[in-house]
Write a protein that binds this DNA or RNA. Structure first.
Lengths: 325, 325
DNA sequence: TTGTAAGCGTTATCAG
DNA sequence: CTGATAACGCTTACAA
């Protein structure tokens, strides 16, 4: 900046002002500064700016995985809103291990983000403590709790599981099976489903825990295992994601099983393809974009010091009935 | 750090050393410093460190979209390798407009990343200039060129299109159609396919430009339009992504068209589901993880000052013949 | 509207 | 092994 100032015949501070608030500088000075910048290809150092102003304009975001459309669509909406407000996103994948999340949190905090977005409401005690001490707004996503670190935006997985079980019972299914990828929130939906389904029908659902990232191939595998290992002969299959549900549908068709007559398939997420699969997937719809947008909005309020009446945002879910169940 | 030093009875500099290179500090001092850090919940300020050391340990990555598995899988592999080496990823979506990319580049550069990853080899002249001036390693992904900004890792889209056309001609297809989402690299594959197919068969392929993000629904729409608008009656359909191909397959089945007897479907990418679709997709396979890993490796070499004999990495592609064509 | 001075929290350098 | 001192490149007072 000092060099630019010399070229434009002004001091370094004036260059700083021209860049951060052009209205504070005379039109002529501004023009000369702009020229000097164009000539030299000067790029201001945001590190130095953040250091002294204590505002990094950086938001950190921690998600289990970016290859899952579930999280990437949410981060996309989150990032879009943040970018519109002049913030950049520092994104990290944390996997599913809590200790990895803790490391990632420390690393992110060292960059002094203006706010942080976390996935889920389960964090190590140290992570919680450090986050509280950082004094920045924090939003926890994909779940709701009465005791968030700061803010939370999500929905109740217990309620989602019960809604799925009620749908199954109401639709007359007497048997059910649960297919899931082993992620913590999916487990809670599954447990809630099992409990409610048992109450309603007296039957225990069969269960396949894939312990692997959800994929079409895993979904096909799940139906095969369900039939071969548990002797599943028909009923409703509640999958922890639409991708698994799509796999189950594909495998059912390959085996000549009729959907929904012989087996019903209930997905989760209402991803783009759900409506276009043949037969179209019945699924629990979650608005991932709304989740991301609302999280951004809430953080922005906190950053700008606006009051928030209730830090818990329950965005709910919707059961979308199509043709697979 | 000064406060930690006071607690541990040492100077601020010693604290800095204990953190950056524990071997430079006596065991006893280290222990006292660690204790003080645990007590206070101190998190070092990487902004200040980066400012003075001129090493931010930040790598910026620019991709068109993170919701496309094509890019997210690549970024995942890239990020994994970088994280293992102690770097963090500053990720931004640039969309497809070159001027947005230019803005994103400036913004990223202001954070003084140690290296930068770009998607594609087409950038605005100003972007090129600024990048060259930044003096950091740059890798361009998903394409190869004889004149990269610094490094490039990818494959030839022209060769891919020609390989697809040769496959079609060799397999005896006399008619072909092209379905694509309008992205620049897909257009080059398509053009190369069209030219080669014309040479080989004397026929011009029909074409559907969806001008929308690839999705299962868009793939179904594409086949409908192909049949209704162009009167497509059979032949090979070359899709710009597996997702579109999956949509075409789904729509064909819904219409009772037999694959590959009546229409052949050739995808692009070899995504996870390609092998599990019914019928399994024949596709051009691109190793996205290898792309990300190789890009990381090349940047790491540059950062560490190791010599690179040839800055152009052509990772190629493979035609995987399955059942859809 | 512009300039001066101070300082953000580190690392690098040199000395002991 | 440890400490003092000087940057790094900005923003924030405060003064002119």
């Amino acid at each position: 900046m000092a060099a630019i100032g010399r070229l434009a015949g002004v001091s370094q501070v004036t260059v700083s002002r021209a860049l951060s608030d052009p209205s504070k500088v005379s039109a002529d000075t501004l023009r000369r500064i702009r020229e000097a910048i164009d000539q030299t290809g000067f790029v201001p150092n945001a590190l130095a700016g953040a250091l002294v102003s204590r505002k990094s304009r950086l938001i950190s975001a921690l998600v289990p995985s970016i290859t899952s459309i579930v999280y990437s669509a949410m981060v996309q909406a989150f990032g879009e809103r943040m970018r519109a407000k002049g913030y950049q996103i520092l994104l990290s994948e944390t996997g599913s291990a809590p200790e990895d999340e803790e490391d990632a949190i420390m690393l992110h905090l060292s960059r002094r983000p203006d706010a942080m977005m976390l996935t889920g409401i389960h964090h190590s005690p140290k992570a919680r403590k450090v986050l509280l001490g950082a004094g920045i707004p924090v939003v926890e996503l994909w779940d709701v709790t009465e005791s968030p670190i700061d803010l939370c935006v999500g929905f109740s997985h217990g309620a989602a599981g019960r809604a799925a079980a009620d749908f199954a019972a109401d639709a007359g299914y007497r048997r059910a099976a649960l297919v899931h990828a082993g992620d913590e929130r999916a487990l809670r939906r599954k447990d809630a489903f099992a409990e409610r389904f048992r109450q309603r029908t007296g039957q225990d659902p069969a269960e396949i825990n894939l312990n692997a990232p959800a994929s079409l191939g895993q979904g096909r595998l799940a139906l095969s295992r369900l039939i071969e290992e548990t002797g599943f002969g028909g009923g409703l299959i509640f999958c922890s994601s639409d991708l698994l549900a799509h796999g189950v549908v594909t495998e059912a068709q390959a085996r000549g099983l009729r959907i929904p007559q012989e087996i019903g398939v209930l997905g989760f997420g209402d991803q783009e393809f759900a409506a276009h699969v043949e037969p179209a997937l019945t699924t629990l719809s979650v608005d991932r974009e709304a989740l991301g947008r609302q999280a951004a909005e809430a953080l922005l309020c906190r950053i700008e010091g606006e009051p928030i009446d209730r830090p818990i945002f329950d965005l709910g879910f919707k059961l979308v009935r199509r043709d697979s169940a």
